Amino acid sequence: MVLEIDEIKKILPHRAPFLLVDRIIEIDPFKSATGIKNVTYNEPQFRGHFPHQAIMPGVLILEAMAQVGGIAMLYPEENRGKIALFGGMDNIKFKKPVVPGDQLVMKAELMKVHGDYGRLHAESFVDGVFAAQGDFTFALQQPANE
């Protein structure tokens, strides 16, 4: 199943410039998802990171990977409208800089889910080359304004 940006916006609460997933190309709800982020020079972070050698900040790569995992968790109707909050990150590794023009392919797998809490492992690749990975703990909550 493929999810385009309009469907992703129905699942994730993020909006530009912090919606960092352009398309979901595979999803197995409550288990895994694979998503794509097309990296372009027009994104605001490249004005300062770094102006003469643009590199996608590692923290945004981690956020993008976590958003793909969030889609796997928030896709089912019973979780729609909730937000996923970070509880922690472990085993973070960066192996390849991500630059404008790259297509970041992110794979997230839910390792453990207990109620509204869970842990996921995510990896990202550019042209099939490993770029980054991380393990994330999260908690699902209703937004504060509800």
Rank of each mutant, 00 (worst) to 15 (best):
M1Y: 05
M1N: 06
L3R: 03
L3V: 07
L3E: 00
E4A: 02
E4S: 03
E4L: 05
D6C: 04
D6I: 10
D6T: 10
E7H: 14
E7A: 15
E7V: 15
E7S: 15
I8K: 13
K9Q: 11
K10E: 09
K10P: 06
K10Y: 01
I11T: 15
I11V: 14
L12F: 00
H14L: 05
H14S: 10
R15D: 08
R15H: 09
A16Q: 09
F18L: 13
F18G: 08
V21L: 05
D22F: 00
D22L: 00
I25V: 14
I27L: 04
I27F: 01
I27H: 00
D28C: 08
D28N: 12
P29Y: 05
P29R: 02
F30Q: 05
K31T: 08
A33P: 12
T34C: 06
I36M: 02
I36D: 02
I36H: 03
T40F: 07
T40S: 13
Y41N: 11
Y41R: 08
Y41E: 11
N42P: 05
E43F: 07
E43Y: 07
Q45P: 09
R47E: 08
R47A: 14
R47S: 14
G48V: 01
H49M: 12
F50D: 09
P51G: 00
P51S: 00
P51I: 00
I55Y: 06
I55N: 03
M56G: 00
M56Y: 12
P57E: 08
G58A: 06
G58K: 08
G58M: 12
G58S: 04
I61K: 02
I61C: 02
I61T: 01
I61R: 01
I61F: 03
L62R: 03
L62P: 02
E63A: 02
A64H: 06
M65E: 01
M65W: 06
A66W: 03
Q67S: 10
V68D: 14
V68G: 13
G70W: 02
I71C: 10
I71S: 13
M73G: 10
L74T: 01
P76S: 07
N79V: 05
R80Y: 08
G81L: 15
G81C: 12
K82S: 04
I83T: 09
I83Y: 12
I83A: 10
A84D: 07
F86Q: 09
F86R: 04
G88C: 09
F94C: 08
K95G: 01
K96N: 11
P97C: 06
P97S: 03
V99K: 12
D102V: 09
Q103N: 15
Q103T: 15
L104S: 00
L104W: 13
V105C: 03
K107M: 02
E109G: 13
E109S: 14
L110C: 01
K112C: 01
K112E: 12
V113T: 06
G115R: 05
G115Y: 01
D116G: 04
G118Y: 04
R119G: 08
L120N: 15
H121S: 09
H121V: 02
E123I: 03
S124G: 15
F125R: 01
V126I: 09
V126E: 06
D127R: 00
V129A: 14
A131C: 04
A131Y: 04
A132S: 15
Q133R: 06
G134E: 03
D135N: 03
D135I: 04
F136Y: 13
F138P: 09
A139D: 01
A139L: 08
L140T: 00
Q142I: 06
Q142Y: 08
A144T: 14
